[in-house]
Nucleic acid binder design. Structure first.
Lengths: 328, 328
DNA sequence: CATGTGTATTGACAAATGACAATTACGGTT
DNA sequence: AACCGTAATTGTCATTTGTCAATACACATG
């Protein structure tokens, strides 16, 4: 009576033991609850267990992805702010989330970004991934609601030696893991000490192959960094404080995927820029679907620069930032 | 204060008025509840309405498909019964739903079938649709959780003049409507009085075109009918009681898409069969993905016949029927 | 200007739910 | 056979949620 153990060695399982064995009980509880709309008590009666057990089963079902709640991304793009942003910046998709606490902003944006990305993903996609707190939040919360096969996730900029908390490698591998994709980490530092060394490294067959994959991404996910004193770039280790100050002196207000932008989104190049390994801004523009996730008042000028120059095709933000962008 | 009216003629909407305008409030309530996991009271506070209103918003969000609960069809296929059925009948997918009341069986099967179909649907699909109570239940409950474009739904058998409650036309048009697909109704009766007339009709350019589309379906959805006294075929009007009795006398135990099968799934042909307009059993086998939805003890022999002969690639049933099939 | 009609909203109550500590069952080990 | 540690299960209670009749509101009509 009740739920059979998941040990799998009981007599009625003939032959091969399958890898991901679902407990029938969990699946059924989920079905009866979410599809048939029975109450937990009714299900408990039917399965001969206590209601509390059903609560646990349902939790498990949600955690294991047997059931998931999908919020139609089309609907998110139909709020008034989202539509205004779409027309103002010529974006093909915008998702705006409601207000919440400031501390949880990147978490909440990550959730939204994850849903937007998950919705777009198709068989055979090659998904480029940048890095940063927000990108990591997306990677951390993404979950596919339908089976997709043959995905590749590729790191689009070299690996940094600094802050490992939201490194390119971590963002890439976490995301690929969550969506069961092939993972390609760029086997190169983000910045090299000379252009010559960079050129030599990129000439290596391994890297040539990897960079080729970077350039063939059909989607890319990135955040926007500002250049304030506590900003992500300043702790990321991709450039020294002096180098960053130099970029600022030359008009930079934003960073995307390691590249610096001025107030109108034009590239701010230079020696340091030339020594960086990763997708360039012009290459970025070649990617058909470019999802930018960013929000927060401190990033406003940086976001404006990014959007104005058309680096994104899809934009995920919060309502406060969205309204501020429209007010400008 | 509160929710703005959806009249759409207020001043802040410049230019074109978009067709499906979502109320921001509904969208936000949905987001805050399902994504941010706030309680209804918290959301009510934030949006300055009563909690009861939030309940209504959330209901509306579910009804309008802004949020939907998806049950991973892969998981449904991993219950022990589903896997046993897959191997016994060589099916590539099986979904088994738990027990419930007998009256609601076709509703519940319809829900499951709808989810299985919705999960499979891809851009550009041509979906053949048979008819019957179960097929109608699928059509009635299907909802896409992601945007899919360029779908065609095509009626795979002629239109009957009998029972209009679950006619081929209704099944087809309802389904196509639900998934925003192009709808192709076969402009011909299900049965003609002579073979010659049928041949003449099928020679018509319009029908030639339509039949060509039928044959190019890449998915097909059908139910299974038995031949008992109260069965669907007997009220459908596709054949007279005498004709049906004749089929039975010649060994028929099942009907799928208007075609009669013997106990092992072999076609039971004859004059009446020759006069029918619609996909044939051999043509059916050419369709890559064939979803069969059926359950109930009275249909057991009919289902066995259908599955044994390999007419289905995917099968949706209830646990009672599933276990009975395994016990045979 | 009163009146009707349909829809959106609310408050109050009953039901359903989630959290958690206590309890029980189980597999492996002396 | 007794023991132990882990994991599943349960009872209880505070919180959250759904329902429903009553009310407010906008808009059209006589």
């Amino acid at each position: 009576m009740g739920r059979e153990k998941s040990s799998g060695k009981s007599g009625d399982e003939i032959g091969v033991s399958l890898p991901t064995e679902f407990d029938d009980a969990v699946m059924w509880a989920a079905w009866l609850y979410y599809a048939d709309q029975l109450t937990q008590s009714e299900i408990a009666k039917q399965l001969n267990v206590s209601r509390a057990t059903i609560v646990n089963y349902l939790q498990e079902a949600r955690e294991r992805g047997i059931v998931s709640v999908v919020i139609n991304p089309k609907a998110g793009g139909r709020t008034s702010v989202a539509r205004a942003l779409m027309s103002k910046y010529g974006l093909s998709g915008v998702f705006v989330i409601p207000n919440g606490t400031d501390e949880s902003l990147s978490q909440r944006l990550g959730d939204a970004g994850a849903r937007v990305l998950a919705d777009q993903i198709e068989d055979g996609d090659v998904i480029g991934v940048a890095w940063g707190r927000t990108v990591l939040a997306v990677a951390d919360q993404i979950a596919l609601t339908r089976p997709v096969s043959n995905l590749t996730v590729v790191q689009v900029s070299g690996s940094s030696t600094g802050e490992p908390e939201f490194s390119p490698e971590l963002c890439t591998s976490l995301l690929s893991n969550r969506i069961h994709a092939r993972c390609v980490n760029l086997l190169a530092p983000a910045v090299l000490s000379t252009r010559e060394l960079k050129a030599a490294l990129l000439a290596e067959p391994v890297l040539k192959k990897q960079m080729h994959l970077v350039h063939s991404s059909n989607r890319i996910l990135f955040g926007v960094g500002d250049l304030g004193p506590r900003s992500t770039v300043r702790v990321s280790g991709i450039a020294s404080q002096e180098e960053i100050d130099d970029y600022v002196a030359r008009g930079a207000v934003a960073v995307i995927i390691g590249r610096f932008l001025d107030a109108h989104g034009a590239a701010v190049g230079g020696d340091h820029d030339d020594r960086m390994v990763g997708i360039t801004l012009n290459e970025l523009r070649q990617v058909p679907s470019r999802i930018c996730v960013a929000g927060g008042s401190s990033k406003l000028p940086a976001i404006v620069a990014t959007l104005e120059a058309g680096y994104a095709t899809h934009f995920v933000t919060d309502i406060a930032t969205g309204e501020a962008l429209l007010a400008l």
